[in-house]
Write a protein that binds this DNA or RNA. Structure first.
Length: 270
DNA sequence: CGAGGGACCTGGTTGC
DNA sequence: TGCAACCAGGTCCCTC
């Protein structure tokens, strides 16, 4: 489900409710996520939430003794609700606080994760080897250009590679390449410096706009308060196979790249 | 090393 | 209506 904007929208939604709160109890109904939830997660009980941060598509719930690391996978959702709120299917984890509230994790496909990193130094292995955030100063056209030299990989798979830049998932990769006029299948190493100079700001801008709109709601993404995101209205290619290009009105094409559906305009992207 | 594909899961939609 | 096939926002891991 969530790409960077949806994770950031989730972060902004839950932080005001749980920051400064003390964890009373963690209830795990189904710990079989992408990796089993480690027993050490219980170290969070009795701790106060200091900050809720985001790194790539991971949410980091930080305390004085360690960090709970949450990933929403494809279908994960978080909400902050009263303890009395009835459970629904796939409500796998509750983190209860010292008021009436609980941070509830729901994930039908269980591709998400809840991990624990002990202490306040060092990095969990899932966070090591991640590339820069798209909003970091280092993320520029020049950066992409330099890393892409010699790569035969398609530009779409290149920008979706977490080691290159984090947070760009399938929707926003499709959208950014359309806006930049770059054919998604073009080899990353065969794209001019100038085109990367255009692409980097377009990626940043697309992600920022999506955050401002509350993310993209397709099937099951919702903000922490249950409201949908409104960026779906802005999508120009994703999910629009066969529909007219917003620029030239030719029907949009679809191919698979890295087994992910890739929608683009034959005329406007080359 | 890079590139490509399968794997992990459930549920909604499509097509016969 | 029933049922199988296919598709989905992510990412790790294995093979060639």
């Amino acid at each position: 489900m969530p790409e960077l904007p949806e994770v950031e929208v989730t972060r902004m939604g839950i932080e005001p409710h749980i920051k400064g709160r003390t964890v009373n109890k963690i209830i795990i109904r189904n710990g079989r996520l992408r990796w089993p939830i480690p027993d050490e997660i219980q170290q969070l009980v009795g701790q106060t939430v200091r900050t809720v941060e985001r790194r790539a598509k991971y949410l980091l719930i930080k305390s004085d003794v360690g960090t709970a690391i949450l990933h929403l996978g494809m279908s994960g959702k978080l909400c902050v609700v009263s303890k009395q709120t009835p459970l629904i299917k796939h409500d796998h984890v509750d983190i209860e606080f010292n008021n009436d509230m609980v941070l509830r994790y729901n994930d039908p496909r269980r591709f998400g994760a809840l991990l624990w990193h002990e202490g306040i130094t060092g990095q969990h292995s899932v966070l090591r080897n991640l590339g820069p955030e798209p909003f970091d100063d280092i993320f520029t056209g020049d950066y992409l250009y330099q890393l892409s030299r010699g790569k035969q990989l398609s530009i779409k798979q290149f920008v979706m590679d977490n080691k290159i830049v984090v947070g760009v998932g399938n929707i926003y990769a499709n959208e950014a390449l359309f806006k930049a006029g770059i054919h998604p299948k073009r080899a990353a190493g065969n794209i001019a410096r100038k085109r990367y100079d255009a692409l980097a700001p377009i990626i940043i801008d697309t992600l920022k706009k999506a955050i401002a709109q509350g993310g993209t709601t397709l099937k099951d993404f919702a903000q922490a308060d249950g409201k949908p995101g409104y960026f779906a209205q802005e999508l120009q290619v994703y999910g629009r196979k066969g529909l007219p290009c917003v620029l030239c009105e030719a029907p949009l094409s679809e191919i698979k790249l890295g087994q992910r559906s890739t929608v683009f305009c034959q005329n406007c992207q080359n």
